[in-house]
Design a protein around this nucleic acid. Structure first.
Length: 257
DNA sequence: ATGGCGCAGCCACTGCGA
């Protein structure tokens, strides 16, 4: 079982690129973020032709999440209850025993912007939702862009960016609380000392200099934790492919027994 | 070996991303 998460930065702009990635990696399921289109405008046919069903929670121009699956999926929930004012940022699907959710946590913009409080509120509501709905005896995976640098190891410059956006104690505590609801950062669990980033700014040759952050995570319930064998960041697919522009995020791939 | 901002939308430049 292979489940990935991929912030695509516009599914329309990235369509050919993402289809090539699916063909190369062949995940059983993948969580997309930043679709940047409405649910009705999602290119269902292109993904169906590639062998994937899609459960979509879209939004015009901004945000938007989806769970794509090889096997037909059941829609568990569209949106995060009580948090729809934050935009389309959570969608949950079920395939067999597996429940798979895709999340795009609000960026927050700046430490003094109202969206920063919205971000913390969203993470708190997500924590409550996980605690209320996730059965630890069943495999549950929450993949997405969390927009939080959870530990110093997840930042290219933890000292220079201490207490800066993504690095604050309030954001890290909100992530601690989410994990405390019964989830594990599966990549961190398998590589306690690994320093691998999932996002690099388009500007200034950041990817070249490996000036990145690890903000794209695959979280799992106890059952998912027991089954996971490997989690890896697909850096190769942060590069340009046949003149096609990459997303500023790399896919994160989790393999399970 | 890498790559030097890119996306959507009010289509000319602005807002946003992280």
């Amino acid at each position: 079982m292979r489940i990935a998460t991929f912030n695509v930065n516009s599914v329309n702009a990235r369509l050919a690129y993402v289809l090539a990635w699916l063909d190369a990696r062949k995940p059983n399921a993948v969580c997309f973020q930043e679709l940047k289109l409405t649910t009705e405008d999602f290119p269902y046919d292109a993904f169906r032709d590639a062998g994937y069903h899609a459960v979509v929670h879209g939004q015009k121009s901004w945000n938007g999440v989806a769970v794509l699956t090889r096997e037909p999926a059941e829609v568990v929930q569209v949106g995060l209850p009580g948090a729809e004012h934050a935009g389309s940022r959570l969608v949950t699907a079920r395939v067999g025993d597996w429940t798979i959710a895709s999340v795009y946590v609000p960026n927050g913009k700046t430490l003094v912007h109202p969206d920063f409080e919205l971000k913390l509120e969203f993470l708190a509501k997500l924590r409550d939702h996980v605690e209320a709905t996730v059965d630890p005896s069943l495999p549950y995976v929450l993949g997405g862009d969390f927009n939080v640098v959870h530990s110093d190891m997840d930042s290219c410059d933890p000292d220079g960016m201490r207490d800066a956006m993504f690095h604050t104690e309030r954001e890290r505590s909100a992530m601690d609380a989410l994990l405390g609801a019964g989830l594990t950062d599966l990549q961190r669990a398998l590589e306690p000392d690994g320093k691998n980033f999932s996002w690099w700014d388009y500007r200034g040759g950041s990817f070249h200099k490996n000036e990145g952050l690890r903000i794209d995570l695959v979280l799992g319930s106890a059952s998912a934790r027991a089954r996971v064998t490997k989690v890896w960041i697909d850096r190769e697919w942060r590069k340009k492919k046949d003149e096609r522009t990459p997303s500023d995020h790399a896919p994160v791939v989790a393999d399970f027994d």
